Simulated assay, not measured.
Amino acid sequence: MTGIVVVTHGKLAQALVATAEMIMGKQEGIKTIGFEAGQDVMNLHEKINQAVQLFAPEEEILILVDLLGGSPYNASAMLALKQSKIKVVTGVNLPMLLEVLPARSMDVATLKQMAVHAGQSGVSEFVFTKSEE
């Protein structure tokens, strides 16, 4: 099973996972990390590394972060550069989580593509067309 680590600014990671679990039930093999004000990137990097170490050594890991170029992304990317079993996807949202959580038996490369697709397709706009009567 692919492990999942959600890393965001503030408490967004915890809220997203809690909401996903409200819909899908309790999930195993998922960790959350919040980057708090005053924390430095190296401290965040160490927290992410510690979360990754909680998974089995052979387990692949998908790290979902909130913002491209943000501290959670930068710290996660540093780990992914050193460990090929880690893949990073930015723009984490609820549709993305709901898609990847039940599919974690797939390899991390496939799961990464699913995450990107679900995250993008989960964004749309409401359009109301007034019918002519």
Rank of each mutant, 00 (worst) to 15 (best):
G3C: 05
M42K: 11
K47P: 05
E59H: 14
P95M: 02
G3I: 09
G38P: 05
V6I: 08
M42P: 03
R104V: 00
I4N: 01
K26L: 02
V17P: 03
T8F: 10
K87H: 08
S131W: 07
V65Q: 01
A15R: 13
P57M: 15
H117I: 09
T90S: 14
M114Q: 11
L79M: 03
I63M: 08
S76H: 11
G69N: 13
A103H: 15
S121V: 13
Q39S: 07
T129M: 07
E36D: 09
A80P: 04
M96D: 03
K112Y: 09
L94G: 13
E125Q: 13
V127L: 14
G29W: 09
P102V: 09
L98P: 10
D66W: 15
K85D: 07
N93Q: 08
R104N: 01
T19H: 04
M42D: 12
G29E: 13
Q27I: 03
K31G: 00
M106Y: 08
G29Y: 11
F55N: 13
M106Q: 11
S84P: 06
A18Y: 02
V88H: 15
V52M: 12
N43S: 14
D107E: 11
G70F: 05
E132Q: 13
A13Q: 03
A115V: 00
T2E: 05
I30P: 01
T8V: 12
P102D: 12
M114P: 00
F126Q: 06
E59N: 15
G29F: 04
V127N: 09
E125I: 13
I63W: 13
F126S: 09
